[in-house]
Design a protein around this nucleic acid. Structure first.
Lengths: 149, 149
DNA sequence: CCTGAATAGTAATTCAAA
DNA sequence: TTTGAATTACTATTCAGG
């Protein structure tokens, strides 16, 4: 498993599970047959800028990075939660799949948001293709998008 | 000094100083003649829900809770709509002009928002000068700011 | 680069006290 | 309830090796 995939998985896990400490990540990955140590998770958390937030239940939990929430990002978030199916990158391209009929709206929002990594964007019925400035941008962009889910 | 006052002070400190670890809080309070230990700060942080965010400079810093940052971006948006005049970049600098008397407030908000692109910020009466990490950051930062209008 | 093992460095909690 | 001292628990980094 490559670092990139693991990062994606961590983002998913931190949202669907309650992760109270780094060892929880390690355990979750072990359950999936992925061998990784706390040291690596610590580094991943740093790169992904995950934060440990004191929770209302008296404990702590890791969360996605506190991002600036514009109106756009709230709309994006809502739409992503409703209609997001999958995301993938290939070179400088990012492909987002949505439920049928939602891709155009998503594409419009993404265009409005004017992400600096983005060079262009074209939407169909259930697919948005984003062309980024380069491969690195595509990865960063993907992370941004995933964080809306 | 009562807990409540200390909490208020911590909120202020976390915004105006770079707090990398809990001991930094302890030191800052000692400078002000307030005796307190790391244990207490840890409890305070929990109650205030401050978070330790991996920073872009490779370190970490404590920050206000994400929800509070959200409030800040709303304020920023309101102020921008009210007082924004122009924005321009030159190399790693971004210059924002506002209606007279509004720049200081804007600068404070921008500083509080702790944008990763930003290195420093100085405000006058109708001008905010932001020094970014590099030219690219300045451009990205400019886009972010414009998106508030 | 990326990682794990070991370890150093921080942070959270326990326990006793006021 | 709130706190500090001590301790435990957790997280970050160093160092060596893919």
């Amino acid at each position: 498993m490559k670092k990139k995939e693991r990062h994606q998985l961590l983002r998913k896990l931190v949202q669907q599970d309650v992760i109270r400490k780094q060892e929880d990540f390690v355990d979750k990955l072990h359950e999936r047959g992925i061998e990784v140590t706390q040291a690596t998770i610590s580094r991943d958390i740093k790169e992904l800028q995950l934060v440990k937030v004191p929770a209302q239940d008296g404990g702590y939990r890791y969360n996605l990075p506190p991002e600036m929430n514009y109106d756009i990002s709230k709309k994006l978030s809502r739409l992503m939660r409703d209609a997001f199916v999958s995301i993938d990158t290939q070179r400088e391209f990012v492909l987002i799949r949505t439920l049928p009929g939602n891709a155009f709206a998503l594409g419009s929002l993404i265009e409005t948001a004017k992400y600096s990594e983005m060079f262009g964007c074209v939407s169909g019925d259930d697919t948005v293709l984003i062309i980024c400035r380069d491969e690195e941008s595509a990865e960063r962009f993907q992370r941004r998008i995933i964080s809306f889910i």
